[in-house]
Simulated scan of single mutants.
Amino acid sequence: MVAANWDDRIEQELGRKLKALRVAAGISQSGLGAALGVSRTQIQKYERGETRLAVSTLIAICNILRRDPMVFLAGHFPDNSHTIDAPDA
């Protein structure tokens, strides 16, 4: 299935970026897990692309690592022409 392979590649890419940013920040898998309220094993699964990152988890990770979410997503929106004004909630 093409979509499944595409999804898997995205998860693996996000995982590689997560690991690189975590290591650069000097945070252990256990430390990031504790900050998120998940286990070190769960962080390993995110970094290997074995478990999908929920948007809420990605936002929490970005806040912990003090990074803009576009660090993870920018490659998927290279020209930023996909901007949509969100309605007021």
Results as ranks from 00 to 15, higher is better:
residue 1 M to P: 11
residue 1 M to N: 14
residue 2 V to F: 07
residue 2 V to T: 01
residue 2 V to Q: 09
residue 3 A to S: 11
residue 3 A to G: 07
residue 5 N to C: 03
residue 5 N to G: 08
residue 5 N to Y: 06
residue 5 N to P: 00
residue 6 W to L: 14
residue 6 W to P: 00
residue 6 W to C: 05
residue 6 W to N: 08
residue 7 D to V: 10
residue 7 D to N: 13
residue 7 D to I: 12
residue 8 D to F: 03
residue 8 D to H: 06
residue 9 R to E: 12
residue 9 R to K: 09
residue 10 I to L: 01
residue 11 E to T: 09
residue 12 Q to S: 11
residue 13 E to M: 05
residue 14 L to I: 10
residue 14 L to S: 04
residue 15 G to Q: 05
residue 15 G to M: 04
residue 16 R to W: 08
residue 17 K to D: 05
residue 17 K to Q: 13
residue 18 L to E: 10
residue 18 L to V: 07
residue 20 A to T: 09
residue 20 A to K: 15
residue 20 A to Y: 07
residue 21 L to Q: 11
residue 22 R to K: 06
residue 23 V to H: 00
residue 24 A to M: 08
residue 24 A to T: 11
residue 24 A to C: 05
residue 25 A to H: 14
residue 25 A to T: 13
residue 25 A to R: 15
residue 26 G to K: 11
residue 26 G to Y: 12
residue 27 I to C: 11
residue 27 I to R: 08
residue 28 S to H: 05
residue 30 S to W: 02
residue 31 G to C: 12
residue 31 G to H: 05
residue 32 L to T: 11
residue 33 G to N: 08
residue 34 A to I: 08
residue 34 A to C: 02
residue 34 A to T: 10
residue 35 A to V: 03
residue 37 G to C: 08
residue 38 V to N: 02
residue 39 S to N: 09
residue 39 S to D: 09
residue 39 S to F: 04
residue 40 R to M: 07
residue 40 R to P: 02
residue 41 T to N: 11
residue 41 T to K: 05
residue 42 Q to N: 03
residue 42 Q to G: 00
residue 43 I to L: 09
residue 43 I to S: 02
residue 43 I to K: 01
residue 43 I to C: 11
residue 44 Q to V: 00
residue 46 Y to W: 10
residue 46 Y to A: 02
residue 46 Y to V: 08
residue 47 E to P: 04
residue 47 E to I: 02
residue 47 E to H: 00
residue 48 R to E: 11
residue 48 R to C: 00
residue 48 R to T: 03
residue 49 G to D: 06
residue 49 G to F: 07
residue 49 G to L: 12
residue 51 T to Y: 01
residue 51 T to I: 01
residue 52 R to I: 03
residue 53 L to T: 01
residue 54 A to P: 03
residue 54 A to M: 08
residue 55 V to I: 10
residue 55 V to P: 01
residue 56 S to D: 15
residue 56 S to A: 12
residue 56 S to E: 15
residue 56 S to G: 10
residue 57 T to K: 09
residue 58 L to K: 02
residue 58 L to G: 13
residue 59 I to L: 13
residue 61 I to P: 06
residue 61 I to W: 12
residue 61 I to V: 15
residue 63 N to P: 00
residue 63 N to Y: 04
residue 64 I to N: 02
residue 64 I to Y: 03
residue 66 R to S: 15
residue 66 R to M: 14
residue 69 P to E: 01
residue 70 M to C: 01
residue 71 V to T: 11
residue 71 V to N: 04
residue 71 V to W: 11
residue 72 F to P: 00
residue 73 L to A: 14
residue 73 L to Q: 14
residue 73 L to W: 13
residue 74 A to K: 15
residue 74 A to D: 12
residue 75 G to M: 03
residue 75 G to L: 02
residue 75 G to I: 02
residue 75 G to A: 07
residue 76 H to C: 08
residue 77 F to R: 12
residue 77 F to A: 13
residue 77 F to M: 10
residue 77 F to C: 06
residue 78 P to V: 04
residue 78 P to K: 08
residue 79 D to N: 12
residue 80 N to F: 13
residue 80 N to K: 14
residue 80 N to I: 06
residue 81 S to L: 06
residue 81 S to A: 13
residue 81 S to E: 15
residue 81 S to M: 05
residue 83 T to M: 04
residue 83 T to W: 10
residue 83 T to H: 02
residue 84 I to M: 06
residue 85 D to L: 05
residue 85 D to Q: 04
residue 85 D to P: 00
residue 86 A to Y: 09
residue 86 A to C: 08
residue 87 P to W: 03
residue 88 D to P: 00
residue 88 D to H: 10
residue 89 A to F: 12
residue 89 A to C: 07
residue 89 A to N: 09
